[in-house]
Simulated scan of single mutants.
Amino acid sequence: MIDDEVIVAFVCVQNAGRSQMATAFAKREMENRNLGNRVEILTGGTNPTDSVHQSTVEVMREDGIDLSDRTPREITFEELQDADIVITMGCSADDLCPATWSGDNRDWDLDDPHGRSLDIVRGIRDEIRDRVADLLAELEAGRSAETS
């Protein structure tokens, strides 16, 4: 079990698709794993848009998650500095300056769902759901091994 809090940041440019899906799945997965306050999830964009993409809202609703009330936000330099793991979604994040991140940096290299068909967005959603589950399993197993 995770002893110390782990901060995970899901970052994208607009914070209107992939990073919103990842955040929602992470919160659901944390609840399913009874991780409580052991993992903190941050999300944001380098150039956030006004609202979550409608296609993202629609495919997430199909999976039982309502993102209609979410608002994209900017991720701050300070938040990234405090994160243990920063995950970019496959978008250009040059302005984030990965060299300044103090933790584990990963790029999931996912297609941008904006303007894509619902079938393509569903595939992106499913890949994100699987990656988030794997990430939380990794965190849980890694922290268990460290305390054994």
Results as ranks from 00 to 15, higher is better:
36 G>T: 03
53 H>V: 01
94 D>R: 11
52 V>D: 04
57 V>C: 09
113 P>F: 07
7 I>Y: 11
99 A>Q: 15
139 L>P: 01
56 T>H: 07
98 P>A: 10
100 T>W: 14
19 S>I: 11
92 S>P: 05
108 W>S: 01
79 E>P: 02
71 T>H: 10
44 G>L: 11
52 V>K: 03
102 S>Y: 14
8 V>R: 08
71 T>E: 14
87 I>K: 01
66 D>C: 05
36 G>L: 12
6 V>G: 04
33 R>M: 15
123 G>W: 03
83 A>G: 01
7 I>P: 04
127 E>A: 01
144 S>I: 07
137 A>S: 09
49 T>G: 14
144 S>Q: 12
125 R>F: 01
25 F>I: 06
65 I>V: 07
97 C>N: 10
18 R>I: 02
115 G>I: 02
94 D>Q: 14
58 E>P: 00
84 D>H: 15
65 I>C: 05
34 N>F: 13
131 R>P: 00
143 R>G: 06
145 A>W: 13
50 D>M: 09
89 M>K: 05
58 E>M: 09
138 E>A: 10
70 R>H: 15
12 C>Y: 13
101 W>P: 04
10 F>T: 00
101 W>F: 14
115 G>Y: 08
116 R>S: 07
60 M>Y: 02
22 A>E: 04
118 L>E: 11
44 G>R: 14
2 I>Y: 05
2 I>M: 05
65 I>A: 07
67 L>P: 01
93 A>M: 13
62 E>P: 02
54 Q>M: 14
33 R>C: 05
143 R>F: 10
99 A>C: 06
27 K>A: 07
137 A>M: 10
134 D>F: 06
78 E>L: 12
112 D>M: 03
111 D>I: 01
57 V>I: 11
35 L>F: 11
17 G>W: 07
46 T>N: 00
85 I>Q: 06
144 S>L: 12
46 T>Q: 04
85 I>G: 05
99 A>H: 14
11 V>Q: 05
85 I>C: 08
77 F>L: 09
112 D>H: 08
111 D>A: 07
146 E>Q: 11
117 S>K: 09
56 T>I: 00
77 F>E: 13
36 G>M: 11
37 N>G: 13
49 T>M: 07
18 R>W: 12
75 I>E: 12
125 R>M: 03
145 A>V: 13
91 C>P: 04
35 L>N: 01
9 A>Y: 13
41 I>Y: 09
144 S>A: 10
24 A>N: 02
109 D>P: 00
